[in-house]
Design a protein around this nucleic acid. Structure first.
Length: 599
DNA sequence: TTTAGGG
DNA sequence: CCCTAAA
């Protein structure tokens, strides 16, 4: 199968097939048998125009697919959506958001920092099994009795991918492009994009129209038919869908004059796109709410979400921008990890960019596919307002439920006297479960360290309890104070890191054990360890303070605390509170040793 | 630049 | 969590 991700939506002929196909021929002639996937990059200029990427920006991933076993995953699992988005405000991000791999790789992409987002294409890869399913559906009759298609199982992609498998004529009449003449295709094109086209190629037209439709929404969710140049919406499953469909097709109505490639045109259409997306999100709300009793449907959670960054975000971005980009590069060097390939595109070096901002592109290994993306590292946390904007209560409830579950088992296991290791192994599942949820929710930022580290299982967390409060300083300035509650898994990682590298070697721990937590600095680790020592001592005090109701902070499970004490002792850090060493629970070694130490 | 400690 | 002195 040949899959070409083609930039769509600009309507500029720069992105015709020939360009992409040529790139395939040039770069992967010998690899065509291995299903090359070529991602053609674009640069979105400040005025909204799309500029084709230069050759060195074309990412060829075929050999990656070959080298790693991932290709087995990519092709057969057709339920995964692959989408490429180009965003623009001050920089360009092309990110690959693959639902399936979001699960297994737990990668994340920063979608903030940009106030305009152009969704270029959305289509899953389809294999034969999917085709069979489709045919079965059509054989079974009308769609009313067939299971409602899920978000990921879009039916359209084969044509998009450049292979003219005549699926559409069989698809319950959802989209029938094959029977249309060139002229009808032109009409459909016009209805889709709001402009005429001179292209005579039927396949191209069909593909383009399909992309346009799949761009605007999920084909499978909206039963529309293209007939006589008009798009008929046949779905009657509720108001939200009708509104949705309307939003989709209101887009071309606004694009009137094609001859002027003005930014107004694209600005309009892009805005419409974002509106569509937001509607989509609203609909997702409904769906998730329906599944609430199911303790969350992961497919829904990982469904593509797009949102506008907040004003605050943009403000801070511009501030950082004006200060330069030294942080990003320095963070790469400081990490000591294999640095990602960085190539920067500046206005001067390329001479193409209309504004003078620096684009930092990086090849990231994301599910075995190298994805260029722009990242700007910041220490700050994801914005709270974004969180509240995009997340549903249901998922939060699920998170808290899981956390409760985890804590409960912690307690019960702790009381039965399990060892630290046993507890950790049992609890890790709970925690990771919850982290996964959080991860699905929080797509706000790229953690560079995350990519460098390459797939830590628990990587993205704490997004929910992110708080930023402004604290007036003595000098009259106002600084932000970020607060992100430490999760159990973080504490465990910290304890593990201390046990491995020793307390005090915070930079080591940060680099080796906390590489995926970009928001935890070595100072943070140190502080947390200090607090842990305090908590450990406090918990071992004769009066069982653990029963106290005032747990403003996450209760640290007793086994962890005992481990903390043990480690503190190993590190020669004699407990500053010698009175409490007598009562050390859950860990005989620790108790004995500490007693021996003081005898 | 990292660590330790105060606030 | 932030700031800063000291190494």
């Amino acid at each position: 199968m040949e899959t070409v991700v083609e930039v769509e939506g600009s309507g500029e002929e720069k992105f015709e097939d020939s360009v992409v196909n040529n790139s395939i021929c040039n770069t992967s002639l010998s690899k065509q048998a291995e299903d090359p996937v070529v991602y053609k990059l674009v640069r979105v200029e400040g005025d909204g125009r799309l500029v084709p990427a230069t050759d060195d920006e074309i990412i060829e991933v075929a050999d990656l697919l070959k080298d790693e076993t991932i290709d087995v995953d990519i092709v057969p699992n057709s339920k995964k959506n692959t989408s490429i988005s180009v965003e623009e405000t001050s920089n360009v991000t092309v990110l690959l958001e693959n639902q399936g791999f979001l699960h297994c790789q737990k990668d994340k992409a920063d979608t903030g920092k940009l106030d305009v987002r152009v969704q270029l294409s959305t289509f899953p890869l389809v294999d034969d099994s999917d085709a069979r399913n489709i045919n079965q559906d059509s054989d079974a009759g009308e769609s009313s009795d067939s299971p409602s298609p899920k978000m990921g199982s879009v039916l359209s992609p084969t044509t998009v991918c450049g292979i003219s498998k005549p699926y559409f004529s069989k698809l319950r009449g959802e989209i029938c492009l094959d029977n249309l003449s060139i002229r009808e295709l032109h009409e459909a094109f016009k209805a889709t994009f709001g402009r005429d086209t001179t292209v005579k190629d039927k396949a191209w037209l069909k593909r383009r129209i399909m992309m346009g439709l799949t761009n605007s929404g999920d084909v499978s969710m909206t039963n529309f038919t293209i007939k006589d140049g008009k798009v008929l919406v046949t779905g009657n499953e509720g108001n939200s869908k009708e509104v949705y469909a309307h939003a989709v097709f209101s887009n071309p109505l606004k694009v009137v004059d094609e001859t002027k490639e003005s930014s107004a045109i694209y600005g309009t259409s892009y805005l419409e796109d974002s509106q569509v997306v937001s509607l989509k999100r609203l609909r997702n709300h409904d769906l998730v709410d329906d599944y609430r009793s199911d303790s969350l449907n992961k497919e829904e959670l990982t469904a593509k979400r797009i949102r506008k960054p907040t004003r605050r975000y943009i403000e801070e971005l511009s501030k950082i921008e004006s200060q330069g980009h030294s942080r990003l590069t320095s963070s790469c060097q400081g990490s000591g990890q294999p640095s990602p390939q960085l190539y920067t595109t500046t206005a001067t070096s390329k001479g193409v960019c209309s504004n003078s901002r620096t684009f930092v592109m990086r090849l990231d290994s994301l599910a075995g596919i190298q994805v260029p993306c722009v990242s700007r590292l910041r220490r700050s946390r994801p914005r709270k307002d974004i969180m509240s904007l995009m997340f549903h209560h249901s998922s939060m409830e699920a998170v808290t439920g899981i956390m409760k579950k985890a804590l409960h088992s912690y307690r019960s296991a702790g009381e039965s006297g399990s060892s630290y290791a046993q507890l950790m192994s049992t609890q890790k599942q709970h925690i990771e479960e919850s982290e996964k949820l959080r991860h699905c929710e929080a797509t706000d930022k790229i953690e560079q360290d995350k990519y460098i580290n390459g797939g830590d299982s628990v990587s993205f967390e704490g997004a929910c309890n992110d708080k930023v409060v402004t604290v007036p300083t003595a000098k009259g300035g106002i600084r932000r104070k970020h607060h992100r509650a430490w999760t159990l898994s973080e504490v465990m990682k910290l304890v593990d890191g201390v046990s491995r590298y020793g307390a005090g070697r915070w930079s080591e721990i940060k680099r080796l054990a906390f590489a995926s937590y970009s928001y935890r600095t070595s100072v943070d680790l140190k502080d947390k360890w200090r607090n842990l020592l305090k908590a450990a001592n406090f918990a071992s005090a004769p009066t069982d303070v653990m029963n106290s109701r005032k747990h403003t902070t996450t209760p640290i499970p007793a086994p962890i605390l005992s481990r903390v004490r043990e480690l503190a002792e190993i590190n020669g850090h004699a407990l500053p509170w010698n009175l409490s060493s007598a009562k050390v629970g859950f860990n005989g070694r620790s108790a004995n040793r500490s007693v021996a130490g003081y005898l």
